[in-house]
């Protein structure tokens, strides 16, 4: 398992200084969330989901881009990882991590989340306001 420090060195996304840099980042194929972002395995969604096709470049892909860079959740690849943006309702896109590869979601305030092989739907969070709206954290 890689540590936060290790991932910062590899991928260059720094995190808030008060967060633990020595911590190991677990790699999971299960349901995970990072702040207002959900990583939903296709098997948990229990819905047929086609594998993603577009390779995640070394610089990563922002699944949510904060305007001032503040709320950017950046998807990073360690090995062959693909992501297709498909924004609709709560869905942001589809992620496929090949066997032997790992994907990481990086966010300055939340650190790194490790994602193992499989296909996932990336979702964002909503709340009930005058109309249903997307959460602004």
């Amino acid at each position: 398992m890689r540590t936060v420090n290790d991932l910062i060195e590899t991928h260059g996304v720094d995190i808030d200084p008060h967060l633990d840099r020595q911590a190991a980042v677990p790699v999971s194929t299960g349901l995970q969330r990072q702040g207002d972002i959900l990583v939903l395995p296709a098997v948990v969604a229990n819905r047929p989901t086609a594998n993603a096709t577009r390779a995640v470049p070394p610089a990563g892909v922002a699944v949510v881009r904060g305007e001032a860079g503040g709320n950017t959740h950046l998807l990073l690849a360690d090995g062959p990882v693909r992501y297709d943006p498909a924004p609709r309702d709560l869905t942001l896109g589809v992620l496929t991590v090949e066997d032997g590869a790992t994907a990481y979601l990086a966010h300055p305030e939340h650190g790194y989340a490790g994602i193992g092989p499989g296909t996932y739907v990336i979702r964002r969070q909503r709340e009930q306001a005058e109309q249903i709206r997307i959460v602004a954290d």
């Binding site: 999971s28 299960g30 349901l31 969330r33 990072q34 702040g35 989340a113």
Partner: peptide
């Protein structure tokens, strides 16, 4: 949601 394994 009860199957959530990690939250950051």
């Amino acid at each position: 949601y009860r199957q959530l394994q990690h939250a950051y």
